[in-house]
Write a protein that binds this DNA or RNA. Structure first.
Lengths: 175, 175
DNA sequence: GAGATTTTGTTGTTAATAACAACAATTGCC
DNA sequence: GGCAATTGTTGTTATTAACAACAAAATCTC
């Protein structure tokens, strides 16, 4: 706390690591900023998985932009299709989406006539969820695009690596 | 589009998959809702990685709640510590955080006296970022908690699996 | 069976994050 | 010197996560 005022004089005792040609960003290529030390970050599962997830979602969103479907919407449509008549509560638990958030998601999908909320006969509190015919047709096309996206992933990481990733990541999903 | 009004009569041609004891959520354990078919989702890298990422971040946030540090803040502190004097632009590119968002992050960390923005001597547009002495001390404790978190991850997935995950996920980070 | 408790869907709020756009000061380019 | 690009900043918008509160209906308890 003694080395304040003077600007940019590296003097912190803890700052003992190498500093690349960063401060002189006007040195060589002018397009410097490359060689930043990520330090311990790359040893953190959380950091790597976050970067990977962002990359994957961006590709997914781009690929399915034509049908205007985002990842969460895709998961909702898929699970309703595979479990016609399930309740919002079941869907919420299955996908780990909060009840409150699911309301919005379903509002949007119902407004587009992809999904229907019918009154459940066995429990008048809950709604039974179904795909409409339009929703079913749409989902077919959507799944094709999703496969295209998954294809691109496989190309990026390699087929065997993708298989391994699926297996390893499933460990989390189980809990 | 003929089967509208009547509630909950599964009659969609596409809805041909099994429906478990979901509609009768009052049947056995009353805590039903378990057996929902996730269908193709588990074959999507994006779905699994999203679930895993949420799990990991929640554990990270919980573990570092005592020091009030979130994942993004941790990454910023770590990289500044390893690259004293780097600019916001460099940091932004290195972490994939948008310039605008980094401003807020740094505002918060600077208000807590963990980080300093000093005028760069080589470029009067940019700021040189440093940890303060307080920030350095804090980061030491923070990293301990982060290791504790990483430890818990290793326990959950197994040490070998964790190593494999690190290797596989790094593929994305490289692009 | 009456009353208390829980569950379900809904509404609303707060906060973190992502993606843009615009701007002033400054730098680099020609 | 003049023009384009860069840097940090401010602001807006949309998505998402996490809560809290509520009414209606179901379930539990005695």
């Amino acid at each position: 706390m003694t080395n304040h005022d003077r600007p940019e004089t590296q003097s912190h005792p803890r700052a003992t690591r190498r500093r690349q040609a960063l401060t002189h960003s006007n040195s060589t290529t002018s397009k410097a900023a490359q060689m930043v030390d990520l330090d311990g970050l790359t040893a953190h599962l959380g950091y790597l998985i976050r970067r990977a997830q962002i990359w994957i979602f961006q590709d997914f969103i781009r690929t399915l932009a034509t049908v205007n479907i985002r990842p969460a919407q895709y998961s909702v449509l898929t699970v309703i299709d595979a479990n016609p008549g399930l309740t919002q509560m079941s869907l919420s638990k299955a996908l780990g989406i909060e009840r409150a958030r699911l309301v919005h998601l379903l509002d949007g999908l119902e407004a587009r006539r992809f999904v229907e909320r019918r009154p459940s006969r066995s429990d008048r509190r809950s709604h039974a969820l179904y795909l409409t015919a339009k929703g079913g047709t749409a989902l077919a096309g959507i799944k094709e695009l999703a496969q295209e996206h998954e294809q691109r992933l496989a190309e990026r990481v390699g087929r065997k690596n993708r298989q391994q990733l699926l297996r390893l990541l499933a460990i989390f999903a189980s809990g």
